[in-house]
């Protein structure tokens, strides 16, 4: 056996890696990660439509992802609606166009804010939760325990969670849009004494089916991304409890990064249809 002090000396004598070597290694790891996520996604589609289905667990995950996020989404959307309206008023007032406020707020909320803010909230709350939960199940051998009892852990843990995030995000987005518009209405009502009916009529004049469809589609995509990345990071956690923290953290960071990229792509595509 090699004495402890000898291996310590060996470590000091090891040649230090150059910046290029470090960069190449990180680049390799990045592309390998992308490849593995692709494989993981492929496996999701293979497993998701094959019986037996874990309906009970899917419904439990709907509850965990959807219902358990309602409080945070409510507060955030209500505040967003009020603040956005309050901040937009002075600019519109300069041109005497405060009557356009409901339309402006509705367009901003439905086209951009609701899908994006809901996704970022879900990436932080749900994505990190999935990463940490599956990560701790991996390091405490609970996933191995499922496998040796001939239960498919991918189907039970991954498919159910990804379905839940994918289905719940569009619903949360629509909920967020409604609450944010209510927040906006309160602010408009306090300043311009507009009625609820007049506010919503004005607000929806500029909203088309394409706006609601594209936002719902974006939310579906964001939900799928959050589910896949959270599950991927958690499912392949290594390095014990430290790895669980890393899995939760990287699930949030990578999800948010991908959400922004997807947002830019979808906006470009949708604008080409306008």
């Amino acid at each position: 056996m090699v004495p402890a002090h000898q291996s310590w000396l060996d470590m000091n004598e090891r040649p230090r890696k150059t910046r290029t070597q470090v960069f190449t290694r990180k680049l390799d790891a990045f592309f390998l990660d992308i490849y593995s996520i692709g494989q993981f996604t492929g496996r999701f589609f293979r497993e998701a439509f094959r019986p037996p289905f874990e309906w009970k667990e899917v419904i439990r995950q709907f509850y965990m992802v959807g219902y358990k996020s309602l409080a945070l989404v409510s507060v955030t959307s209500f505040v967003t609606g009020i603040v956005f309206t309050k901040q937009s008023r002075p600019s519109l007032a300069e041109f005497g166009a405060t009557s356009w406020l409901p339309s402006l707020v509705a367009i901003a909320i439905i086209r951009a804010l609701a899908p994006l803010v809901t996704a970022l909230i879900a990436a932080g709350k749900v994505g990190s939760n999935i990463g940490a939960e599956l990560g701790s199940m991996r390091v405490t051998e609970q996933i191995d325990a499922m496998e040796v009892s001939a239960v498919n852990p991918f189907r039970y843990l991954v498919v159910t969670r990804v379905l839940a995030t994918t289905c719940m995000l569009p619903l949360l987005m629509l909920y967020m849009a409604v609450i944010a518009l209510l927040g906006a209405y309160l602010n408009v009502h306090n300043n311009e004494q507009t009625s609820l009916a007049a506010f919503f009529q004005n607000a929806f004049e500029q909203i088309s089916f394409l706006d609601i469809f594209s936002s719902s589609f974006k939310s579906l995509l964001f939900g799928f991304t959050i589910g896949i990345i959270g599950c991927y990071k958690g499912y392949y956690t290594t390095q014990g409890t430290q790895g669980v923290g890393k899995a939760a953290n990287s699930a949030v960071v990578i999800s948010m990064f991908l959400i922004f990229i997807e947002e830019i792509i979808v906006v470009q595509v949708v604008n080409s249809f306008r």
Binding site: S136, M137, T140, E141, Q142, D144, A145, E147, V148, S149, A150
Partner: peptide
């Protein structure tokens, strides 16, 4: 086939691995 075989094997883990 592996799943069918695993039904005949019981595995007791070091830290029990009970579902939390």
């Amino acid at each position: 086939e592996l799943d069918a075989l695993r039904l005949k094997i019981g595995f007791s883990f070091q830290h029990s691995a009970l579902y939390d």
